[in-house]
Amino acid sequence: MPDAFTTRTLNVTTGTREAVADLTHACEEFLQDSAAGRDGLLNIFVPHATAGVAIIETGAGSDDDLLAALRTLLPPDNRWHHRHGTPGHGRDHVLPALVPPHATLPVIGGRLELGTWQSVCLVDTNKDNPNRQVRLSFLG
């Protein structure tokens, strides 16, 4: 019988620009290896103070819209008290309050239960740290 709890760390390079990186395929591959047709929960966790996890449509402009909305809500300027790094970096430390660093999703029959247009995405506005880790954990 497969383990009831399995975990894996992904290394994701987001580059030096704001990014919404689609993790859906990596999540599905992880579940193929770990869920073995079982029901359970997939937890996605980003152990960074300046990144988050969003469930959002990608490829039709929503990912760009999300980044535009975050620039409106959290302008990359010098208003922030947290001031190390590139100008406006303090906003990156506020991001996880709006885009949490985790999501827990249902897995049915070993498959991720997302809506038709939903994708699992890493949201990273921090231009100073292009290398991210994402922890995937299956409990089932």
Rank of each mutant, 00 (worst) to 15 (best):
G61T: 12
R132A: 12
G85I: 13
R83N: 15
P75R: 02
D92M: 08
P106K: 06
A97N: 07
L70A: 08
T116D: 12
V94Y: 03
D65I: 09
T72A: 08
R83I: 04
T116I: 06
Q133D: 11
G59Y: 05
L122Q: 10
R111N: 10
T125Q: 02
G110I: 05
L95S: 05
R71G: 00
P101K: 00
T58D: 04
D64L: 07
N126R: 07
K127I: 15
A97Y: 02
W80S: 06
G110Q: 11
G85V: 13
L122G: 09
G59I: 02
K127F: 00
H82D: 14
P101R: 01
N131T: 13
A97L: 03
H102P: 09
N78C: 00
N78M: 00
P87L: 01
N78A: 13
I108H: 04
I108E: 06
L105S: 08
Q118D: 10
N131S: 14
L98A: 05
T104D: 13
D65P: 06
R83A: 15
L122K: 05
P106S: 12
G61E: 13
G59P: 00
R111P: 00
K127A: 14
D128K: 02
S62V: 10
A68S: 14
V120F: 06
P130C: 10
I108P: 01
G85H: 11
N131M: 02
W80I: 02
G110R: 08
L98E: 04
H93C: 03
V123C: 12
R91Y: 02
H89F: 07
P100H: 04
L95M: 15
V120A: 11
T104V: 13
Q133C: 05
A103L: 04
